[in-house]
């Protein structure tokens, strides 16, 4: 299939360069922002996307001419202005496509070269799209669906970066929904929904999504090491840490679950701990207890909840702040 011709590369003050060029949009062709295009440069295909587009019209370049014809209903009433309007698109080059891989561009296109649209297949190759992947949306102006390979996307780290309101949360939700819709190769997903942005998924995917309310989450104190405590109590001194560690070891040796209440009680009973240090430590432990997230038993147990497929967390333990 012959690629649609979008326009002609023009010579500007700073282009064409290997990294950016401008082209006059062909009459009757729609070219919008973010449209992917390609142009030949010395035997290679440069590809990029439209970063800016301006419309110009020589009739309206002179302010005095615009003013001059105001009396007669404006320039457009006196002249065929619309007929001579044209658009100039600016393109940012992504790279050249050679032997199935993207290379850094080294030569600019020549002024006068024809700019073509990038076909869906070419765009898929250039952007690394996967026809069987997670569909996160459609490329504007191109009408091409964006499907990302889940393995390449999730096997290491993924960050979604954009300005406020640009749709980061929505993008994340779409990704998760796409994962949930898959029959196989479905990883377990844990969402910490701090702002309540993902609560709608619970009803949309009733059988697959389990909501764990933050107030029912408990951290088992008996499973916490002194290093965990230091995370919560950074002011704790070395000797206080040693004393607390000793107390935790004693409580753990009794082979039963314990909460912060028991830790405080044991601290009060301990004669080895300096009185001043003990008072400060006791105060901090009371503060931790007031958070209401520490208990004798931890809940939920992630190995029960976080698993591909159905997950059914056990009911939360009957516990207060203890």
């Amino acid at each position: 299939m012959i690629a649609l011709e979008l326009g002609t590369v023009i010579a500007t003050q700073d282009g064409p360069s290997p990294f950016r060029f401008s082209f006059v949009v062909r009459s009757g062709v729609r070219v919008g922002l973010n449209r992917f295009v390609k142009v030949e440069a010395d035997g290679d295909w440069l590809f990029g996307y439209v970063t800016d587009i301006i419309r110009t019209n020589r009739y309206f370049e002179r302010t005095d001419a615009v003013w001059e014809y105001e009396r007669g209903g404006g320039l457009s009433a006196a002249f065929p202005t619309k007929m001579w309007e044209y658009s100039v698109a600016s393109v940012r080059v992504i790279g050249t496509w050679r032997n199935g891989t993207v290379h850094r561009p080294v030569l600019p296109p020549s002024p006068g070269q024809t700019v073509h649209e990038l076909s869906e297949d070419e765009l898929g190759s250039v952007l690394g799209l996967d026809g069987e992947g997670l569909e996160i949306g459609t490329i504007e102006e191109q009408g091409c669906s964006v499907r990302l390979n889940p393995t390449r996307l999730l096997q290491k780290h993924l960050a979604i970066l954009a300005m406020s309101g640009a749709g980061k949360s929505n993008c994340a939700r779409v990704l998760v929904e796409e994962l949930l819709r898959r029959d196989s190769g479905r990883p377990a997903v844990v969402i910490f929904d701090v702002h309540g942005e993902y609560s709608g998924m619970a009803s949309a995917f009733r059988d697959q999504v389990k909501v764990i309310r933050a107030e029912s989450v408990r951290i088992a104190v008996s499973e916490m090491t002194i290093w965990h405590f230091k995370e919560f109590l950074p002011e704790m001194s070395g000797s206080q840490a040693r004393d607390l560690s000793q107390i935790l070891a004693e409580l753990r040796s009794q082979s039963r679950a314990f909460g912060i209440e028991e830790v405080i009680e044991r601290l009060r009973e301990s004669e080895r701990v300096n009185r001043n240090l003990r008072a400060a430590l006791e105060g901090w432990l009371f503060d931790l207890q007031a958070l209401g997230v520490f208990g004798r038993d931890g809940w939920p147990r992630w190995e029960d909840v976080v698993a591909p497929g159905r997950g059914e967390p056990p009911p939360p333990p009957e516990c207060g702040a203890g």
């Binding site: 003013w67 001059e68 014809y69 105001e70 009396r71 007669g72 009433a77 006196a78 002249f79 065929p80």
Partner: peptide
């Protein structure tokens, strides 16, 4: 059609 010019637009065009 013009305020300060008498040249017909068809000639300008």
């Amino acid at each position: 059609f013009g305020l300060g010019t008498s040249i017909p637009p068809v000639l300008v065009e």
